[in-house]
Amino acid sequence: MMREYGNPWAHRAKWLYLIFVVVALMSPVLHTVTISFNEHGFGAADYDFTLVYYFDLFRNEEILAALGWTFWLAFVVVVVTLPMGILSAKFYQTTRWKVPFLLLMLAPLFIPADIMAAALLVYFKTLSRFFSDTFGLEWFDLSMTTAVIGQVLWCLPYVFVVVLVTMARYHAEQTEAARICGATAWRAFWDVEFPQIKAGVFSATAFTVILSFNEYTRTNFLKGGFETFPTYIVSYMLNTGMTPETYAMSGLVSMTSIVIVGAVLLLALRKEQA
């Protein structure tokens, strides 16, 4: 509620400031996307709309391969993280050690990406040496698996929080009622609870896809034998600086995220109105 005797202009000015900050935070990305459609590139006085730089991207074999790996990685990360997120939310609800468990779940968010990635890198190297020396196995060599582990650690806290918030609105009596009707715990979950937390699980999925799709540092440390789109862009940008190609690549990554977020928000809005 607005304070009824407050100055309405002061209130509007505060809103304006809030919007300004959001726009300012988004401005570099919006700028990049705009430039990526300009035939004359950055710094030119003229602006002519073109998709030519994007077409170039899709003719580049390396970029296509990187995109393929990125989506494959995102898919595997979603498949691993979602069930783990749901399980951890369930575990949180039943455990007596709520605060320590919560701290553990959220801790990976607090540690800078490169510090955690460095520790994991050395850990995997150690494990990999151990397995190859002792059993002749290639476990934990830098690979898709290690990249997935690094990304799951990054995405799990978000999925956990989103699912937990959705579950808080669910009435546990319904699970009990289903059990008493003859459903096993498993059936009760799928028949009764899951349909009601679907929305949260769906947002968590979208969230995970975006997080995985955009992740750079951990992936760069822990991947083996492939490039993802972010690692490709960064090495390209570090080598050549900002070129029309890098603008198009940045634009592509940003717009993918924007489209996913937009779709989720639209669905949420439509559901709210229904």
Partner: peptide, 21 residues
């Protein structure tokens, strides 16, 4: 939630995009 929007964009891209600004 408006402030989540920037997080939806890759961190590297956001930082690189500051260069031309």
């Amino acid at each position: 939630l408006l402030f989540i929007l920037p997080f939806m964009i890759s961190e590297v891209i956001r930082i690189f995009a500051l260069r031309p600004i």
